[in-house]
Write a protein that binds this DNA or RNA. Sequence first.
DNA 1: GGTCGATTCTTTCGCCTCAAAAGTAAGTGC
DNA 2: GCACTTACTTTTGAGGCGAAAGAATCGACC
Lengths: 386, 386
Amino acid sequence: MTAAVADWLPLSAGERSVAIEVLVGGPLSRTELARRLNLSPGSLTRLTKPLIESGLLVEVPEAGAPAEVRQGRPSQPLDVVAESRSFVGYKITADMVYGVVTTLRSDIVARLDRPLTTHDPAGVADLLAEMTAELARDFPRLAGIGIGVGGLVQDRTVVAESPFLNWRDIPLAALVEERTDLPVVVENDVAALTEAETWFGSGRGLDRFVVLTIGAGLGYSLVLGGRRVPCDEEDRGFGRHWIIDPHGPLTPDGARGSAVSMLTIPNIRYQVQAGTGRDWTYEEILRLAAAGDPLPARVIDEAARALGILVAQIANFAMPQRILLAGEGVGLMDVAGDKVTQTMCDHRHPLAAPVDLETRMSDFHDWARGAAVLAIQVLVLGAAEA
Amino acid sequence: MTAAVADWLPLSAGERSVAIEVLVGGPLSRTELARRLNLSPGSLTRLTKPLIESGLLVEVPEAGAPAEVRQGRPSQPLDVVAESRSFVGYKITADMVYGVVTTLRSDIVARLDRPLTTHDPAGVADLLAEMTAELARDFPRLAGIGIGVGGLVQDRTVVAESPFLNWRDIPLAALVEERTDLPVVVENDVAALTEAETWFGSGRGLDRFVVLTIGAGLGYSLVLGGRRVPCDEEDRGFGRHWIIDPHGPLTPDGARGSAVSMLTIPNIRYQVQAGTGRDWTYEEILRLAAAGDPLPARVIDEAARALGILVAQIANFAMPQRILLAGEGVGLMDVAGDKVTQTMCDHRHPLAAPVDLETRMSDFHDWARGAAVLAIQVLVLGAAEA
DNA sequence: GGTCGATTCTTTCGCCTCAAAAGTAAGTGC
DNA sequence: GCACTTACTTTTGAGGCGAAAGAATCGACC
């Protein structure tokens, strides 16, 4: 049982699809799997047998509650052994490293944060190795490491460009691999979060899915048919040229009236500071706006309008089945969600399908979890993806 | 040879994929097909044999010119017998029906137009049957009819809503089928044009593709993985709420400053008429603008700016590999293409991939050809698509 | 002009996967 | 206890696929 979870890799295509379906779809009976994968019952028996024998899947007693009482032979749901392996995810910011340990299902089972005192690549790799060693004491069955970085990442191994770390072409995956002897995946943070949501979150099972993050900057990620669409400007900063209102505010970052100007946390703080002379935090500004303080209220109102227009444009042109709003800047939705929705509707055809807009207040551990999902994907898919 | 092109339908999945690849990809050797479809050479021999025996494919002598001189056994390109079947496509406008006959490759081999004197459904069906009968004299091997209509079409058979014909829930396909004994597909005109471009035109082989049409109204169609994304507001008129410039012109159709206001032919004519008191044609307005006449020039300049912004938004959010600009209103690109491109770049990230923007001046026969492609698809795919 | 190598296509063979159908298991309803 | 329903398993046969060897047809080279 313990050592038997042999390598996940030597799976046939059919077996892998079954494994993934169970992994992301929760416990599923063979009949349900047959329905989802368009296979005959007989095939399901054939495909699941080796997976169960290898310990990758187990038959779970019952779906939690007795569920609905049905006639006939009760189904025998299959589930992955979520705790059979652990995965580590890190999110690197300018001054902190946030770490999590997750199960195969990407549930967070531990957290570990450390201040980042150096931007020297070797120093960062050392820190990550130390943190990993510490986590490995409690979770000996670590199967991989995922690292999320703001910036441009190539081949899921090399940080090609990261302004806030001042990195260029740093082979971070190799640096950490040689210190930990674990497979390492590096990816842009928004991309990582997107993959996590695509596999285990809001985007599960959808054909067209968008993730829009608001924080220090904007992030945009389009998922089509389960695959993230790569794009050149990826995380050299989206939205600096998405001009929402040509007469909008002029801010240090982004073109006048751009989505970056009007929505990112630094620029909202800048606008309020420029008007009041005081440097409030983002949360304070939201509170002031909610309380009716004129200037913050106007800035937030304009931000909400900008977000509504932005979401409407995304919905109009990319036509996703769902849009996930994430990041630290989604507090805007709590204070001015109505304005966002209203503006969005004004910029949509009245007969258009309502936008399935989901808001997820995410902290840095959610970003780290996103990175861990990459490690899960690598184990399951065998590192073979674009 | 003549009667042998048995039914296209009883094909295995593998055979069908080969047939479609040859159909849309031109003459292809077995080796090339094996490469594209990820099959072994042996499989190709197996799959092509019955297709050749049934007369659907033929071995063509050589690729036109002797091509490159290579060592080894020369390849034996396969091609469909494009003239083995003919297809009819109609585009219905308020006062005309435009008809074409195409080959299996969707090349137009004949045209036939007739004034539409009635909007009575039976009368329209009668006219289509008459035209079909006339075309059938020259092209006896008609295999299907495609009809493109502006408006909302359901199940490719029923015109659910067509304002300009004042139709509601008209089973046009059935009406024409019973008069012609041919399979009939009805589809929204933009959708038909999009399918044609996806199979045989600019969108061939692309994973993400957008068609934007400018004419009496706007049309928008997103193709992902070879499939058009269906959408609710489909052809109840796109773009009335795509607000490009809140301070833009107020026109009879569309919200103030919307894409419809600023780009469609009737609204451009309206703007110029409101300013000059004369009712110029679209082409005259373009000429006046090019000659420097202030008011038309300003209207066209604003239209170009609007188009640039619109295309940039599409590129930013839907990230297509190519955008096709079609319709009768693309003359704008000839006069003010630079302005469009310039504005587009201003609204894109400087590092973003350049937008592959293609302009296609299309007349009504191109729309009819699009409808004919639907008939081709039905024959090839067996009417099985969403 | 004969041989060699390159390239394309064909043939043969065995493996793998799948679906169909029949059989088994395990519950509910009466 | 009996019929019925649903879930799963086993068996069997067909079909598609790739690997590998062979045949065809060209250019290159001596």
